[in-house]
């Protein structure tokens, strides 16, 4: 069964803003689906439509087997949602908030109490659970918000940029938690992110959003492979051995291009990983052994660049992208 299925899903705000512009989604049960796009590309709007918070302008969607327009209450029962902005009542304690959330999903007082205690343990909030949320740090609030999304044991979870703004340690903890949720409990995860490495590490399938449209979709490996070319960077003892190596490598099957620059040789070819061993052997036989060898595969950033014409532009966490990528 498909966990999420959308056809022609569209949301316009007023006559000019096409936040989501007719997207089709098919997310298999048990997958982590990475929804990648830069600011304003329509990620949150998509999540809100799938989570029954925003009414689509057009199109249909089924989530966990239920139509979001025909039966939104049943969809809410089956999905967990952690929105981009945490939504917490600062006056309650973490425990009160989680227990109330559980009860509003129909749990008995006792069930809600046990479930809240368990989740507080899982997200590492047991020691602050009885303090007012007002005093929590940003990362702590985010973890509580995440726990809220899981309180009723949903089979499909939407996480809208769950790691944005977290420090590397917390980010890693969230990643591991998402993996455990997915691998351990089989929960389908719809994850939006601006971080390529996050999508790359976690997602079984990635969709790249640009200006309200999905411009590429598939497993990260396939998307990267579709770019075609890997590169192998070699350095040699002397220019002379580099030249000899370049001549030999030019004849190697699958090599598209060889560039020599002093003691360095760059080889461009399909599927570099499986060619590495043969290349090393060939160079040894030719009496020009490489001193260093680096295999570079296309990254999702290369994919992003190819399908959108610009780099993924994220303010924090990475050096500024070329100016063509900025849109605001």
């Amino acid at each position: 069964m498909l966990a999420i299925e959308a056809t022609g899903l569209t949301k316009h705000f007023g006559p000019t803003i096409r936040a989501v512009d007719g997207i089709d989604l098919r997310v298999e049960e048990g997958q982590i689906f990475g929804f990648l796009g830069q600011n304003g590309s329509g990620k949150t709007t998509t999540v809100r439509m799938l989570a029954t918070l925003t009414r689509p302008t057009a199109g249909t969607a089924r989530v966990a087997g239920v139509d979001v327009l025909a039966n939104p209450a049943e969809v809410r029962r089956r999905v967990g949602v952690a929105l981009q902005e945490v939504g917490l009542d600062e006056l309650q304690t973490g425990r009160e908030l989680l227990e109330l959330q559980g009860r509003l999903f129909g749990q008995s007082a006792r069930e809600a109490r046990e479930r809240a205690a368990h989740l507080l343990e899982v997200v590492g909030l047991a020691d602050v659970a009885d303090r007012p949320i007002r005093g929590y740090s940003g990362g702590t609030k985010r973890r509580l918000d995440l726990a809220c999304a899981l309180v009723h044991g949903p089979r499909v979870v939407f996480l809208d940029e769950p790691t944005t703004g977290l420090d590397p340690v917390s980010r890693d903890a969230v990643w591991r938690y998402i993996e455990e949720l997915n691998r351990g409990q089989g929960v389908t995860v719809f994850l939006t992110t601006q971080y390529l490495e996050e999508a790359d590490r976690l997602a079984d399938t990635v969709a790249i959003m640009d200006q309200g449209k999905i411009v590429a979709q598939g497993p990260p490996g396939e998307l990267k492979a579709s770019i075609g070319t890997d590169s192998i960077m070699l350095t040699f003892e002397a220019e002379e051995s580099a030249a000899r190596a370049a001549a030999v490598l030019g004849q190697f099957e699958g090599v598209q291009r060889v560039l020599t620059s002093g003691q360095e040789v760059a080889v461009y070819l399909h599927d570099g990983a499986s060619a590495v061993a043969a290349i090393v052997r060939l160079l040894d036989e030719a009496g020009a052994p490489a001193q260093t060898l680096v295999l570079k595969q296309p990254t999702l950033d290369d994919v992003f660049l190819q399908v959108t014409g610009h780099h993924l532009d994220v303010e924090d966490a990475r050096p500024a992208a070329p100016s063509s990528g900025r849109n605001a």
């Binding site: 989570a51 029954t52 918070l53 209450a73 809410r76 029962r77 949602v81 929105l83 902005e85 945490v86 939504g87 917490l88 009542d89 600062e90 959330q101 509003l104 999903f105 129909g106 809220c148 009723h152």
Partner: peptide, 12 residues
């Protein structure tokens, strides 16, 4: 605060 939406996301 966004808490209204959190409540609106329950089956209540």
């Amino acid at each position: 605060s966004g808490y209204f939406e959190k409540l609106a996301l329950t089956s209540t």
